[in-house]
Nucleic acid binder design. Structure first.
Length: 278
DNA sequence: CTCGGAGCCTGTCTGC
DNA sequence: TGCAGACAGGCTCCGA
């Protein structure tokens, strides 16, 4: 379930640990995990660790030739990047790849094998299409332009990564609750005021989740192996039947495009596709 | 172009 | 107790 806040948490932890270190060896334990010639990363030095959308991207510099390449990890559902320091366990279940650097070992562990490890010579193919909602360039005006003309359900629209990057099922639900917007609304039907509310909710929920090192239900672990704590602050996600923290009415669960959606029908009223001017 | 659904994967939980 | 089936959901692919 790693979404933007979880990936950001991992990146912030790994940056000081990996930066400047040399990749001594890369062991691949799942033949289907790597994409591209990932072994080209070996022997190079880590010069940057960043988040692009939901990916963790390491920049690797080649000393002599001045070449540069990029190792990208997508955690998808159950992936974890775990920092072992100088003492790494010999074998453990679901280990897909192991990166040995001179300052320690980084393990890529993934139960369900949706996660990917990818090598690119250039950064461009790794750049997501969508706008990063935590970037300073993400304004309410730009959000309004992105939403314009879309007939998609609002919750479904928030999950697509070619408009905004970083949201998944948990934060889409939480953001819509904060914005007091019904998940079944048509994305293009929002008024200017509603777009502003959605923009504020996006910024606020993501900022708070990063501050709490993300959300852990069962799978997400930080690079240190610790869990996130934002699940304590979730208002509606996985709270079906529980009282809404605002109005005390029952939170409901409905299935939208095969995914659970949680919301408060009283605080997030309406389901129409008709824009109401205001 | 947009939209919706299947498939990928495995651990966990529920009901019979 | 054992087993089948549902469920979790990020992303890609394919067809309408």
């Amino acid at each position: 379930m790693p979404e933007l806040p979880e990936v950001e948490t991992v990146v912030r932890q790994l940056r000081p640990l990996l930066s400047g270190g040399r990749l001594l060896a890369l062991s691949l334990l799942d033949p289907r995990c790597p994409r591209g010639p990932v072994q080209r990363a070996v022997g190079r030095r880590v010069s940057a660790v960043r988040r692009l959308g939901k990916q963790v991207v390491l920049t690797l510099d080649h000393d002599e030739a001045g070449q540069r390449g990029y190792l990208a990890v997508h955690l998808r559902m159950t992936g974890r990047l775990l920092w072992r320091g100088q003492r790494a366990p010999a074998a453990l279940p679901h280990l897909r790849a192991r990166l040995r650097l001179d300052q320690g070992t980084l393990d890529f562990v993934d139960v369900r094998r949706f996660g990917t490890l990818r090598w690119e010579e250039r950064l461009a193919p790794l750049r997501p299409l969508g706008l990063d909602p935590t970037a300073s360039t993400f304004t309410a005006r730009r959000l309004g332009r992105l939403l314009q003309g879309s007939g998609q359900q609002l919750k479904v629209w928030l999950l697509r990564q070619d408009r905004l990057v970083g949201l998944g099922n948990i934060y889409a639900a939480e953001i819509l609750f904060r914005a007091r917007l019904n998940p079944w609304r048509r994305a293009g039907s929002l008024t200017a005021d509603e777009v502003t509310r959605l923009h504020r909710a996006l910024r606020r929920v993501l900022r708070e989740a990063v501050q709490h090192c993300g959300t852990t239900f069962s799978d997400f672990q930080q690079a240190s192996g610790l869990t996130g704590s934002y699940q304590r602050y979730l208002r509606v996600y996985r709270r079906e039947g529980e009282p809404c923290p605002v109005c005390a009415g029952a939170v409901v669960r409905e299935v939208q495009q095969g995914r659970s959606t949680f919301y408060c029908p009283h605080c997030q009223p309406g389901s129409g596709g008709i824009a109401i001017a205001g």
